[in-house]
Design a protein around this nucleic acid. Structure first.
Lengths: 231, 231
DNA sequence: CAGTGGTCTAGACCACAGC
DNA sequence: CTGTGGTCTAGACCACTGA
């Protein structure tokens, strides 16, 4: 007999019994103490298995009420947001970066509304192209709040992309990200070598640090791009 | 003095010291025992704080080597994949569902390639429309493998959507999901009340259970839809 | 080999939610 | 009030990995 019982074994066994119908959706599981006795483990070990099942969206726990199988399992994906360079290199392609334009301008109104900037806030506006094996891969339209990140004035974005630069400057920021589809504008079509109006996959991301708006970026990918995840 | 030290406090303090530059990216943290002494906590408590920091992509741990701040923090999003009905209702809108078409056909070649189906595999092909406040919200193009889910023959999809039906039948399956942009085809444009060629946000999802292909679904959203997440 | 994290245990106390 | 999960502790042993 196996004397040591891993929380993984317990988790897997509980999951098996849920999938197998022994504990159908909505039903109540035995309490921690009972399970600990059954598995011959300490209560903390069962607790850890349970905590992971909660994280995975399989069960819900409430004090006094006990542990229930979720009536409908919570499906969730964990998406890694890699740097474009890493993404391209992971596909076995060569990565190249090009700065298309760079200028310092007052924030346009649409951006002020989105980032809650004061009127006339000075922004560094960059357009960058990321290439995979020499072909356009992603077009990056980047706005950096110079009031919050003044050192961006001195940065050289001709060789290092602003994403990489920013993650080094402010590695731990709060982010809102959105995924959508948009039609290629003439300038985008030119940069990405596609037709005007082509459907492009778009990611927009705005970043805050201690409540202050740091940057807004709109990334459009070459035609046909997909973001894939498993769970 | 506070006698009980929560792992949350420890986690927050370590995070603060990392963000503040005390432990810059790439640097080595003190070992668990030293931190436990410093915080006046048990080693397991520090361990739990550390485990969460690993989950959050902030630090890396290796035995013998110790704990390091990740050179570039791993950015990751956790996306909930709700049922359309829940998604619509969460926005405070009324949800309505309509079955557009339903037929049983052999799997077309493109689908056989994607799901690794044998030739002639019989599929239930459904087209469904999900409405928000009476307006088209999402068009669902669903294929169900009748060889793996024969009970789908008897199911009534005129009132209950296939997504909800399937999550009840096989709640715990393996899923591959992809996000992309596509141009509205004539039929899609008609159903979604948009123009042919309009850029549409698209989610494709294929589901397996014990290695067998269960279903493939292609969901296109009304024009302008965004999927939003924070982290 | 020695140092680190990874896990388990037994017991304790606490916090919350139903009754 | 009582039963449940949530957390902490002190100690132990194990597993990996680098020197």
């Amino acid at each position: 007999m196996c004397t040591t019982t891993s929380f993984r074994v317990i988790k897997a066994d509980i999951l098996r019994r849920i999938s197998g119908g022994e504990w159908p959706p909505g039903s109540l599981l035995p309490n921690e103490l009972a399970l600990a006795r059954e598995f011959g483990a300490a209560r903390a070990t069962v607790g850890r298995a349970m905590r992971e099942l909660v994280d995975d969206g399989i069960v819900e726990r409430k004090r006094k009420t006990g542990t229930r199988v979720r009536p409908v399992p919570l499906r969730q994906v964990r998406l890694d947001i890699p740097l474009v360079r890493v993404e391209v290199e992971a596909q076995g392609s060569s990565y190249r970066y090009a700065l298309v334009s760079s200028e310092s301008v007052p924030a346009p109104n649409w951006l002020r509304a989105r980032l809650d900037l004061r009127q006339g806030a000075e922004m560094l506006h960059l357009v960058c192209l990321h290439l995979s094996d020499g072909h356009p891969y992603q077009l990056e339209d980047r706005w950096i709040n110079l009031g919050a990140v003044p050192q961006a004035r001195q940065a050289d974005f001709s060789t290092l992309g602003p994403s990489e630069w920013l993650t080094r400057q402010m590695p731990f920021s709060d982010i809102e990200i959105s995924f959508s589809a948009s039609a290629a504008e003439p300038e985008q079509a030119r940069q990405l070598s596609c037709a005007v109006g082509d459907p492009l996959f778009r990611i927009e991301r705005q970043t805050f640090w201690e409540g202050r708006p740091i940057t807004f970026v709109r990334m459009v990918y070459r035609c046909g791009h997909r973001l894939i995840a498993r769970y």
